[in-house]
Amino acid sequence: MEDNIKKFLYVNRKAPYGTIYALEALEVVLIGAAFDQDVSLAFLDDGVFQLVKGQNTDGIGVKNFSPTFRALGDYEVTKFYVEKESLEERGLTADDLQEIMYEDEDDDYAEKPSIRLVNRAEMADMMAEQDVVLSF
């Protein structure tokens, strides 16, 4: 079975509510999690806005799906690569992002952060290591 595990990357480059891309990506990640692949998520360009904390959609009548990112650890989706340059260009730092943790089953269920800040070159390297890249 090990041989069948592929590296899947979901690339998020869109802000959360102006278009349907971000929500669709999240739904595909949740459905795809049933297939036990090696999943990573990339957040760059406007995609970093998806992870900003303090989102409240009461005034626009759509579901705030940002809390769902915190459930992805339960689905063994634990690698959120966030690009530093994209944050900086938008006046954001890591402190502006919500905390997303997962429990490492191989390390006595220790709580670990899912978000990994990477620079642009590291993001490019990570993208180049994938078997399948799904963009949203």
Binding site: L30, A34, K63, N64, P67, T68, R70, A71, D74, Y75
Partner: peptide, 15 residues
């Protein structure tokens, strides 16, 4: 309430 999704069955059982 916390995550805004109904969990998949294996996630539910694990949780």
């Amino acid at each position: 309430e916390e995550y805004q999704i109904a969990p998949a069955v294996r996630v539910l059982i694990k949780a």
